[in-house]
Computed example of a mutant assay.
Amino acid sequence: MSVEKEWTGRTSGTKWMHRSLIWMMHNLPYRGVYLFVCIFVIPFCMLFSHKGYIAIYHFFVMRRNENMALAFWHTYMNHCMFAGIILDRFYTYSGGKLNIEVEDWDLYHNLVDSKDGFVILSAHIGNYEVAGYTLEAESKRFNALVYSGEAETVMDNRRKMFETKNRHMIVIKKDMSHLFEMSNALANGEILSLPADRIFGSSRHYNIDFLGYKAKFPVGPFAVAAQREVAVLAINVMKTGYKKYRIHIKQLQQTEGNIKQRAENLAYQYANNLENVMNEYPTQWFNYFEFWN
């Protein structure tokens, strides 16, 4: 079964549920909402969303070599962590502020101050969406590639968050016109943010050793950076506590060779960095499908 069939890319819940959640984040005690979700909602979700639960359980058993009891506990903690991240997302939609620390801030600002565009690569770990609201750049527009089928409430609130700063969403389209927007953004010296751990549309991928097993990483994001020969940052935003996050920034190195060789080298660097972050935050892996081959 392909990734496209296993993962819809859409935040669960109806429009009224999302609006209710925003209202709760604004009017009810945050900790109370979180405890209610972990005690009552998460067990229900694990019971009836069996495919996602099994995929994460397999991650802890097969990729981290945990016994059944520990893997089950970490699977539950993973779901609670994901719930906390979703609540933090809606908390920001309601106007709340998070406490965010940034490592290697200079790597980002040095590229912002340069005349050239650059690429930011992200993954579905932690809460990368927070980066889009934190990494400000008055001199460069921040362009984020986003999935077009996301829930309406989420997309509406993302637009509200983005329009307040020099930010722009590039929506993935079936006619592939988003590729021209991406190319133009880099040509204009802007920032282009791309997810680099899931295959969208094209089936082209690299088979890379990742946590000791072969996994598929899409060619597209790395090919874009290699073709334009721009700087590349791997950025991961990891939850460290109650309303607290740490942004990890790592610059990948453009190497010698043709576009194909340089793109592949970027992919291997990216996978290695992602592996290091995952080893530090194993319960913040949120790819709820069988990621490995």
Rank of each mutant, 00 (worst) to 15 (best):
Q227P: 00
Q227I: 05
Q227F: 08
Q227M: 11
Q227N: 11
R228C: 09
R228V: 04
R228Q: 14
R228I: 01
E229P: 08
E229Y: 09
E229M: 13
V230E: 02
V230Q: 03
V230Y: 02
V230F: 01
V230D: 03
A231T: 04
A231C: 07
A231Y: 06
V232N: 05
V232L: 07
V232P: 05
V232Y: 05
L233I: 06
L233V: 01
A234S: 07
A234H: 07
A234P: 00
A234R: 00
I235W: 04
I235G: 00
N236Y: 11
N236F: 12
N236V: 06
N236L: 06
V237D: 02
V237R: 01
V237Y: 04
V237H: 00
M238V: 04
M238W: 03
M238Y: 02
M238D: 02
K239G: 07
K239I: 04
K239W: 05
T240V: 13
T240F: 08
T240K: 11
G241S: 03
G241D: 02
G241F: 00
G241N: 02
G241M: 02
Y242M: 01
Y242A: 03
Y242G: 00
Y242W: 03
Y242R: 06
K243F: 11
K243S: 08
K243I: 07
K244G: 07
K244E: 15
R246A: 09
R246V: 14
R246C: 11
R246L: 14
I247R: 01
I247A: 04
H248K: 13
H248C: 06
H248V: 11
H248F: 15
I249Q: 04
I249E: 01
I249A: 03
K250M: 03
K250W: 00
Q251E: 15
Q251G: 04
Q251M: 13
Q251Y: 09
L252R: 01
L252A: 00
Q253E: 14
Q254V: 13
Q254N: 15
Q254L: 15
Q254R: 13
Q254I: 14
Q254M: 15
Q254W: 12
Q254T: 12
T255E: 10
T255L: 09
T255R: 09
T255N: 07
E256W: 08
E256I: 13
E256C: 12
G257Y: 10
G257R: 12
G257E: 12
G257T: 12
G257P: 14
N258K: 10
N258F: 06
N258Q: 08
I259C: 10
I259H: 08
K260S: 13
K260L: 11
Q261N: 14
Q261D: 15
Q261A: 15
Q261E: 15
Q261M: 15
Q261F: 04
Q261H: 09
R262L: 03
R262E: 02
R262D: 05
A263G: 12
A263V: 11
A263E: 09
